[in-house]
């Protein structure tokens, strides 16, 4: 088997003196959708923030495409091809849809023609963005904001897209659209690390899944095995492992 695109090796991380993650190891293979599930407060968002460089690991290594990225500044990690769509669709609310997309290109080295193709790509994926280029991001609906947040993260052609609870607070029909877009992205060759509270929806599209509890990986495997075993019940009911 070839080396994984993302390789998290025995990482500890947290906030100041508060440790959250303990010895977390996780691999994401090129072209896969890997799901990360676990109860609220398990440390899923903390792991994504550590991978994207907002937090620094206090132990362990993070390797992306063969190069160590742990300890790099977040913009260097973005340059390496890794994009993180944070929890709660953190858009630039007072700027327009088009400006938010343009900000997704910031720091990239695409020429004008390549940039135009990126706009076209995200407009194909989320046609509603094409219809409202001048709307301020803050006035969009929750689902539209989520689509804009994903589109913004796609502007620089990331090789790995990390999505933190993209379905949070969305109507079921909108969740379907977002899940559909994630599957289309995989078909386009984008690798995806997906954190989701809707465990079944995540397992439906994932190639592999990790289960988190209290800052520790308590198991991983194929979605069918995760569904069949009692890991999920343990992770969500908090029974001691």
């Amino acid at each position: 088997m070839s080396a994984p695109l993302l390789d998290v090796q025995a990482v500890d991380a947290g906030y100041g003196h508060v440790g959250v993650l303990r010895g977390v190891s996780l691999q994401v293979e090129k072209g896969a959708i890997v799901a990360l599930v676990g109860a609220n407060g398990a440390g899923k968002s903390t792991l994504l923030k550590t991978i994207s460089g907002v937090l620094r690991p206090t132990a362990g290594r993070i390797v992306f495409d063969g190069a160590e990225i742990s300890g790099l500044a977040p913009h260097r990690i973005v340059d390496a091809g890794l994009m993180h769509v944070a929890e709660g669709r953190r858009l630039f609310r007072s700027q327009s849809v088009r400006d938010n997309l343009e900000l997704g290109l910031y720091g990239g080295r695409l020429d004008a023609a390549a940039e135009a193709r990126r706009y076209e790509f995200v407009y194909e994926l989320f046609p509603m963005l094409r219809e409202r280029p001048d709307h301020r991001a803050g006035v969009l609906s929750g689902g539209q904001q989520q689509m804009l947040a994903i589109a913004q993260a796609l502007m620089r052609e990331p090789r790995l897209l990390m999505l933190d609870e993209p379905s949070l607070g969305l109507a079921p029909v909108i969740v379907d659209q977002v899940i559909g877009a994630i599957e289309r992205l995989r078909a386009e060759g984008v690798t995806i690390l997906l954190v989701e509270q809707m465990v079944d929806r995540a397992l439906d599209i994932a190639d592999r899944a990790y289960v988190f509890q209290n800052g520790v990986v308590i198991g991983h495997g194929a979605p069918a095995d995760i569904r069949g075993g009692d890991l999920i019940r343990r992770a969500y009911l908090g029974a001691a492992g």
Partner: peptide, 23 residues
């Protein structure tokens, strides 16, 4: 300009700007 919009983005949400490659 794009750099100017990046400044505005930092003003609005510093962490979100970090995640978009803005230093």
């Amino acid at each position: 300009t794009r750099a100017g919009k990046a400044v505005m983005a930092v003003a609005e949400d510093r962490e979100a700007a970090l995640l978009r490659g803005i230093a």
